[in-house]
Amino acid sequence: MTLSTSQASADPPAAETRAFSLADARLPIAVTGAVVLAIVLVYTVGGRDPGLVTQSIVTGLLLGGVYALVSVGLTLIFGVLGIVNFAQGSMLTLAMFLVYVMGHSFGIPVYVATVVAIPIMFGFGWLVQLLLLNKLTISGNENGPLLITLGLSLLIVNVLLMVFGGRPLSVPGTVDGSFTVLGALVSYERLIAFGGALLVALLLTLALRKTSLGLAIRAVSSNSQGAALVGVNVGRIYALTFAIGSACVAVAGGLVAPFISLTPSVGEQFTILAFVIVVLGGLGSVVGATVGGLVIGLVQTVGALYLPGTGSLILVFAVFVLVLFFRPQGMFGAKQ
């Protein structure tokens, strides 16, 4: 890929300067403060067993890692291409079944299979964007891509149903077991998924900030026409972005597969939450999606101590509505 780095960096996109401005750092700090304050309150006046609270916080953080992993791919696609990718959940399922097949038919351990799945899903995403979506995205069509991804998700789910049937399948873990931290149980598999989420977020952030490719992606994100004028191949950047988003899902699918029952519809439950997280974090912000994932994970599990069952999900959507109301651009999002 040839990018005219000198031209592009001569006039850095506005988003970058904003990302480092102090005013925008205030809200993330406020959010972190609010989360810490809420946790302290739960401990002191929450009236729940402290051991249980610790467990729910640990569980929430680990769960948040999984959410973050699913959301970082989505935020890129959503933020850069402006595509509401409704197939994100079913692509997650697809990645999980890929890992399942590799383990089941070829005996490849799950984490090795995950690494193999990354280029496969990358290629899948590239093709989807190139063949199905690019024409519509470049012409600025709003609803076309959205309907295509919806159709794609129906297609993936039903093909998986046809091939594998709907009975729950499982991927054997290679590092079964758990340990305790401050009396709270931590499963190795979930910790690895959490670590994977942080790693993916870190690598993506670095790639977006430090490489010429990342610069091109950000340039296309803030003004695709301008980017095209300075020599960026917009169509290729779109395909690449979708491919990276799909590769993230491959990582998520592989790391989540050992502790979740596989059915063709398993990924769908993550789609809606991922959109909540992406909006909470700010469109296109990888850091935002990571922090947002952790916050939503915490809200769900700690909230479940007080509002069991669906109540915890209601809390999640309450947070969503509040964010939309007071800061529609999200925690780390740039003002429109």
């Binding site: 051991g51 769960l63 979930r190 439950q269 599990t301 101590l305 999900l313």
Partner: peptide
């Protein structure tokens, strides 16, 4: 009595710990 939601339930550790408590 501990209840959990029918959707978006991917970790039962807290619920079981609550039951065991």
């Amino acid at each position: 009595e501990i209840t959990y939601p029918a959707t978006n339930f991917t970790d039962a550790t807290t619920q079981v710990k609550e039951a065991a408590s």
